[in-house]
Amino acid sequence: MSILVDKNTRLLVQGITGNEGLFHTTQMVAYSNIVVGGVTPGKGGEWVLDGKIPVFDSVKSAKEATDANATIIFVPARFAPDAMFEAADAGIPLIICITEGVAIHDMMRVRNYLDQKKVRLIGPNCPGLLTPGEAKVGIIPGNIAIPGNIGVVSRSGTLTYEVLYAMKNLGMGASTCVGIGGDPVNGTNFTDVLEMFEHDPKTEKVIMIGEIGGNEEEKAAEFIRTKMTKPVASFIAGQTAPPGKRMGHAGAIIEGGAGTAADKVKALEAAGVKVAKHPEEIPTLLQ
């Protein structure tokens, strides 16, 4: 068991013939055999990866031919909203959008549309998902994590790699690692993933990696306090970030005194979460 993706996932890649799409498809296929097809309008009928993966013109035709149940999006930001609408309309229940820099008005429309269709979106601006040993759906390097019983959820990319790597060095593995992305309007939040981990028999402990901006960490703390039985350790990035400045991620900004690291740490500690002082310390809190 794991959450969201496993060895039975049947994955499409939207933007499969682009630089990023092709590079990461190669990496994903090398990790495990879950990619069933790709989509690039105008390139339907072609094949990539030496004839292993078929390319389709639309998500609808790809789904009909492959019975895909998830899709990952690698198209540029201005085309990503359309790619998400297309996947939802084609009846794909799980969309992972890696693309960074999607306009927030587009994301509000996408999110509200997807909610009506009951489609699960991960991202955008995220590294995707990794269920070690089973499925790599995204750009998290496969070799930095080993299978295990710790669920990992994070708003950040490389910071997550740092934590997975520190876990591996201590012989600790992950059940699933979920990168929810650093944008202010995204598809899946901490609480959604914590709930999935709470119900996943393979996950025994959870690591949550947050950062400044918004109040999702505070909401997660409330969920942990009232609903979670599994131990959670955390780290919040941005303790030294100045207010009013966007720290790279569109969502990582302290606005009007809200969304500070100190507030988040306080809320988490009050919920019984052990909060690490630096990322390499997090796994040791669960030993």
Partner: peptide
């Protein structure tokens, strides 16, 4: 100089944690 926004913020935090002061993000 760091790759990734979360890790860049974290690197600043860790510098501060060990008594230093970051010059930039």
């Amino acid at each position: 100089m760091v790759n990734g926004a979360g890790l860049a913020m974290t690197s600043m935090d860790v510098i501060k944690l060990f008594g230093g002061d970051p010059a930039n993000f």
